[in-house]
Design a protein around this nucleic acid. Structure first.
Lengths: 143, 143
DNA sequence: TTTCTTGCAAAAAATTTGCAATTAA
DNA sequence: TTAATTGCAAATTTTTTGCAAGAAA
């Protein structure tokens, strides 16, 4: 999803291309990091009249349709981002909350191994890594 | 943290070993998967008079002292578990909710690789696999 | 005793829902 | 025209906080 034809993307789901929906996708595309619901709300509201419930409902929709990802720290606000073509994982800085996206999943092969070892059909997995980014390490004087 | 001397563990933090605190650690020790706040609340309440705020406050305390982990995926309820000596992952049956614990983490080496590639200090990670256990596959007639 | 911790009740924060009005198709 | 979608307000759900009473050291 790297184009900007949000209208088409929404229509492909068999849904109505409302200004709010287009604005949500556009807002996600502009963010340099996965955005929280309120960040998205603020951004969308700059363009369109909208309400928080519309944001929530549409994020759920887009998520269930696989157009976006939901990520973030447990217990903290969820963050949303546009889904890229390939399977990704994230690297989250525990200090500045910066999120780095990583492509190249190391778990495909492992999942197959586990599947046969445990007699389990593995369909999906979720993985995130946590630590400190270079800048924050420097700030901590640990570099 | 494999012993059951919760009293000692709490004292070591310089905190009072209240029945509620001991019960929280005991509850976490009994769980076969990281537990949500309300699961812990229910379990503790079976033993001790308690309140939700006590659970929240003590989970925060134990977390900040490094005795427990906070995990769970964004948007879902946070889940807490005792910190183990060795690192584990889980395999969750999407049908019967059975949890299989897997030792032998495939991510240690990968984390090191990512750390140098992305210039990030990787301290922790979270990973869960989802699918169907053998029994549920049989029940579905897919085996 | 003294200080920390608890329970309660109320407040905040985050998310969801019902429903009438509106709008995309 | 009509079925999907929105905004609003109210309801839930989750988490946090103030404070007086109670308990551990």
């Amino acid at each position: 999803m790297n184009n900007c034809n949000w209208e088409q993307a929404i229509r492909r789901l068999g849904k109505k291309a409302t200004p709010q929906r287009k604005a949500i996708l556009a807002a996600l595309a502009e963010q340099d990091r996965p955005a929280t619901v309120d960040e998205i709300f603020i951004k969308v509201r700059e363009q369109q009249k909208t309400s928080l419930s519309t944001i929530y409902r549409n994020l759920d929709l887009l998520l269930s349709q696989g157009l976006i990802n939901k990520q973030g720290f447990p217990g903290e606000k969820a963050r949303y981002s546009l889904k890229k073509d390939d399977h990704e994982h994230t690297l989250v800085c525990m200090d500045c909350q910066k999120i780095v996206t990583i492509t190249g999943c190391p778990l495909e092969a492992y999942a197959a191994e586990i599947a046969s070892r445990e007699n389990f059909v593995v369909l999906d997995h979720r993985m995130e890594m946590y630590g400190y980014c270079h800048k924050c390490m420097q700030a901590k004087g640990r570099v």
